[in-house]
Design a protein around this nucleic acid. Sequence first.
DNA 1: CGCAACGCATTGTCTGGTCAATGCAATCCG
DNA 2: CGGATTGCATTGACCAGACAATGCGTTGCG
Lengths: 266, 266
Amino acid sequence: MKPAPVYQQIADDLRRQISDGTFPPGSQVPTEAELLEKYGELHGVRSRQTIRQGLGVLVHEGLIEARRPKGYFVIQRKRLVYRPQAELRQKPPEIDVFTNLVQEEDGRTPSQDIEVSIVNPSHMIRERLGLEPGELAAARRRVRKLDDVPYNLNDSYVRLSLVQGTDFMHPGDVARGTNAVLGELGHELVYGFHEFYLRMPMPDEVQRLQLGAGVPVAEHLSTTFDSEGNAVQVTVNLIPGDRHVIVFETHRGAEANAPRIPWGNP
Amino acid sequence: MKPAPVYQQIADDLRRQISDGTFPPGSQVPTEAELLEKYGELHGVRSRQTIRQGLGVLVHEGLIEARRPKGYFVIQRKRLVYRPQAELRQKPPEIDVFTNLVQEEDGRTPSQDIEVSIVNPSHMIRERLGLEPGELAAARRRVRKLDDVPYNLNDSYVRLSLVQGTDFMHPGDVARGTNAVLGELGHELVYGFHEFYLRMPMPDEVQRLQLGAGVPVAEHLSTTFDSEGNAVQVTVNLIPGDRHVIVFETHRGAEANAPRIPWGNP
DNA sequence: CGCAACGCATTGTCTGGTCAATGCAATCCG
DNA sequence: CGGATTGCATTGACCAGACAATGCGTTGCG
């Protein structure tokens, strides 16, 4: 049996101590210097780099973060409910995905930055919207925040010819919701197709969402169709994994007996 | 303006070259020695550690992997469709989540290792199943594979008193499906509540699923209820982010006009 | 020919340092 | 008192090496 590298043992020791409550969420783990002393006696570790390598493992796993010049601390963040099914709910109309989140987490004030533009969208979007070569789209990009910290990105794309001159292009809140605007235009959204891709964020996404190390994201592609089966809108949501739990429900037969759920996070 | 650290510049350069096609998926990127020579001239980098730090960034982002003694290579893996909604579909009964996956990716042979045991489940499970203190549960753990490489983990928990002595406890394939077994016991599953938690995998999960560095996972908690609103089964699915796309659909009103989708991955 | 042994390029682990950057706390000064 | 300065512990970046482990290809031997 080959012994694990020292830096792995350090990571394993700390990970176990974090999960068994020795270092609860929010608490400080030993500093590099303290660990160097400890593992110097135990395993003959003499270099600070080796200690750093071990701590780096946990940082990349999203378990701890470095707060200079204090030390390393165990991470914990509360998760908000992300409920993609709520988008096609009819009542009440002002409860969209975002407000749905917010109601679960009151005490914090939501806000969003909205930016509307005309774009030549990516292949991925063109394909789902069924755009002709050269055809343009309207893009409605939103950064949704809670107490001014970004919680997710939400970019909606619609065939330009469909919404030019309508409220969809208004770069601000639309009280009745943009989905209502599309309904008024004769394209009520009745069917949604949802895809979730899991990956690590790109550096620009790290900056825009102020992500820590080791935080994965879900790229949620939502394609919505009108009653005639035409793709009307494609929305790209970028959801930081450490701040959300994605929730939805499935039914068979009557919609009765959906129980209330009193659980916390795992 | 403060210049970015050298190792970040190296990572950024390589990342750009990967995304713009200079290094397509599967191709080799320069070795540490080659990069050391290049950035030695450009930025005066003299230590191999600094090069390794830059490459390490991309490894942790899941973009490249090291294949000793060849060098570093750009990663790409095909994603299978993970369709949690299919579980409550009634016809055909033998199409469960897994076979549903497989049909999208023929040419590969599916298999699963099944293990049944009686356990005292975690708080998270107890809470969702509504277990009394001290009450035990039956656990049916499956490792699902394609061509003998693991694709996901699937652990189902049911109140022990409900299934003791039934086919649910059979440690092998149950042709009609375990959900049908629960149906025969008078607990037809009609409602499902689904939670997805995104995170980096624990080391044991890395080993069991043979995950590469920088691959996030989704922990999918599925709680299913019978027609009387009782929680019957909790299933914990562990889904490697690099091998799956999670898909589901939403409807409003009639189920008509669900279009066929001809898209590839983004 | 077939197989074992060896060489070799490459990445993995670790040493033992140096200097910079950060942010908090104590201190100093008007 | 109150604001600016300084000190200090800590992490961040980087250096210049050493030796181990891995797996592929070649070489050599029976």
